[in-house]
Amino acid sequence: MVCCIRFDDFDWGPDMESVYEAAGGSEGLIRLAAAWHSRVMADEIVSHAFSHGFHPQHTERLAAYWAEALGGPTTYSDTYGDESSVVRIHSGNGPHEEMDRRAITCFDQALQDVGLVAEPLRQVLYDYFAWATTVSMTQYTGAADDVPLGLRIPRWSWDGLQS
């Protein structure tokens, strides 16, 4: 007998240890990052952010970043960099509210694409991405050199931003 597990078969509520686990762990976030990246590259406005190119392992790195932010392993910080390095990549481009709104829409669509639609998980992931896009990544719209050293990746839980 072959059995399969669907996202809809789980109780995605706050009883789970972390948002990371509820989202399917590393594999779930890699699927989400790939779906988001695909949607972004198809968007005429958001794809502009990638017009200079991107790292060949962008999807894996993005998934590792999200994993750490959502209560998973610290692979991103241990391997790729800290929050300062991530914020620098997103800094020095001036305000871009329309691009941010469209990136958030792409994320919401990507959640649907990979089946992460059960509440409250979908809302928690959406809220995290919207906050990261419009607050965390837009703190330094001037020069990337304005970003302070040593920032740590913010942690997000079922209750939102953790202090």
Rank of each mutant, 00 (worst) to 15 (best):
Y76H: 03
V19N: 03
D78N: 13
M41T: 01
A64S: 10
D9I: 05
P95Y: 10
M99A: 13
G150F: 06
M137I: 03
P154F: 05
N93P: 08
G13N: 10
S163D: 15
Q112S: 15
T138Y: 09
W36D: 00
Y20T: 02
R152A: 14
A144L: 06
G150A: 03
I89E: 14
S85E: 13
C106V: 01
D108N: 12
P120D: 01
D9F: 02
I30T: 11
S163N: 14
S51Y: 06
V86D: 04
R102Y: 00
D159Y: 09
Q139G: 15
G53T: 03
V135D: 15
E44D: 12
S136M: 14
H37K: 12
V147H: 00
D8N: 10
P73C: 06
M1R: 08
D8A: 15
A35F: 04
V117I: 14
H90E: 05
D113V: 05
L151M: 08
A33D: 01
R88L: 03
G160P: 09
G160M: 00
S85R: 08
G94H: 01
F7A: 14
E17P: 13
P148E: 00
N93M: 12
A143C: 09
Y126V: 10
A22R: 04
A63E: 07
V87R: 09
L70M: 07
T75E: 13
D78K: 10
T105S: 12
S91V: 07
A63I: 08
P120T: 06
E83S: 14
L111Y: 03
P56G: 05
S84K: 01
P154D: 05
M99N: 06
V87G: 01
M1A: 13
T75K: 05
A132M: 06
S38C: 11
D9V: 00
D82I: 00
G53S: 04
T141R: 07
H55E: 10
R39N: 14
Y65L: 15
L151R: 10
I5V: 12
N93Y: 14
M41Q: 12
A103V: 02
T138G: 14
S47L: 02
F54N: 05
C3L: 11
A23L: 07
R101D: 15
Q139M: 12
C3G: 14
V117L: 07
T75F: 06
H48M: 10
G24P: 07
G72I: 02
G28R: 04
A143Q: 06
G13C: 05
E27Q: 11
Y20H: 11
E44L: 12
V87W: 05
L161P: 09
W36E: 04
W36H: 09
L116Q: 09
R101F: 08
H52Y: 10
Y128G: 00
Y76D: 05
Q109R: 09
M99C: 15
F129N: 01
D159P: 00
L125N: 01
M99L: 13
S157E: 00
E27C: 12
V40P: 07
A67F: 03
Q112P: 05
Y65D: 11
V19R: 01
A67W: 00
P148T: 01
A64R: 01
I30C: 10
E27N: 15
L149C: 11
D145L: 08
S47T: 11
F54K: 08
Y140H: 06
V124E: 04
Q162H: 12
S51C: 11
S38D: 11
Q57E: 13
M1Q: 11
Q112R: 08
